[in-house]
Write a protein that binds this DNA or RNA. Structure first.
Length: 282
DNA sequence: AAGATTGTTGCTTA
DNA sequence: TTAAGCAACAATCT
């Protein structure tokens, strides 16, 4: 999400919304889409996996991609380069065809042929236009992110204290920590050497510190490599992420553990596929 | 054909 | 009140 946010913000900040096209009513909330037309995108922010478009009118456009959502920019070649953050060719669709496609649910049109496509196969994602109060209410329900100072030892210790749920579920709980999903949760726990089935409340100080540093390390590296394309993820230019090559356990059931040469196991935890090494995650 | 899939919400139960 | 555990949402692939 951070990769997408950067791509979109670099290109759309300061641009006026000329036209809004709602192709699938289900994914749009917040009343009349026409309200957006004529408004201007001041900047695009993010809390966890939720994108927050800050508009000149004072309204906010919230976008959540859930499992299969994509936000892909498109612009004519003549706009690309010449001081723009993208090189020519970056906007060529890499999703396998032309946009819009049958999964395009929503489109924003900007001047000079710049377009933003929201595609979503499973239609779990949403686009919602909200008043500032509602934006604040929604964002305040999300916990600190791994790369902020609020993601501290004290905070984690407090959050884990007396928790009966397994640590994997707690890492996925966006009210406690925001931004960690199923793939990164498995990678963080592998990096920290902690068994995903462990009761969160049972972790000692040293183990909490490991979660803390592994969380920062994995997320930092994943952003550096522009995200993880396991299946449908695309960045704001329609390109794939490059972090898959660095996944140590996710999607590697039966493979050899890179640390101890044991066999990577897959179980179900929190109703999610969970990958770990029984040899070195205790 | 059953079971899997990157996420969250809302229900039930404790 | 709060927490834990699941089904549900929906489309596609194996």
């Amino acid at each position: 999400m951070e990769t997408i946010r950067r791509d979109l913000n670099d290109f759309l900040a300061g641009l006026k919304i000329k036209k809004v096209e709602i192709r699938d009513k289900k994914i749009f909330g917040g009343g009349e889409g026409k309200k957006l037309e004529g408004d201007l995108v001041k900047k695009i922010g993010r809390q966890g996996k939720l994108l927050v478009f800050e508009l000149k009118s004072g309204l906010f456009l919230l976008i959540h991609l859930k499992m299969t959502g994509q936000l892909v920019l498109s612009a004519p070649d003549k706009l690309i380069g010449g001081g723009h953050p993208f090189k020519k060719g970056d906007f060529q669709d890499q999703t396998g065809g032309k946009l819009p496609n049958k999964h395009t649910r929503f489109v924003l049109y900007f001047p000079e042929g710049v377009k933003l496509f929201f595609n979503d196969i499973r239609r779990f994602g949403y686009v919602k236009l909200v008043e500032p109060e509602e934006k604040t209410r929604i964002v305040s329900q999300l916990g600190p992110e791994p790369l902020t100072p609020e993601f501290s030892f004290q905070k984690l210790k407090e959050a884990f204290k007396n928790r009966k749920a397994n640590i994997k579920s707690v890492l996925l709980n966006q009210k406690i920590i925001s931004g960690i999903g199923n793939i990164y949760a498995d990678e963080v726990l592998f990096s920290a050497g902690i068994d995903p089935r462990r009761e969160a409340g049972s972790l000692d100080d040293e183990e909490i510190k490991k979660i803390l540093s592994s969380g920062k390390k994995i997320i930092k590296k994943a952003i550096k490599y522009r995200g993880t394309t396991f299946s449908d993820y695309r960045d704001g230019r329609g390109g794939k992420g490059n972090f898959e090559a660095f996944l140590k356990v996710y999607g590697r059931e039966g493979e050899k553990c890179p640390k101890c040469s044991g066999k990577i196991k897959k179980i179900t935890l929190a109703s999610r596929g969970t990958h770990y090494c029984p040899g070195c995650q205790k």
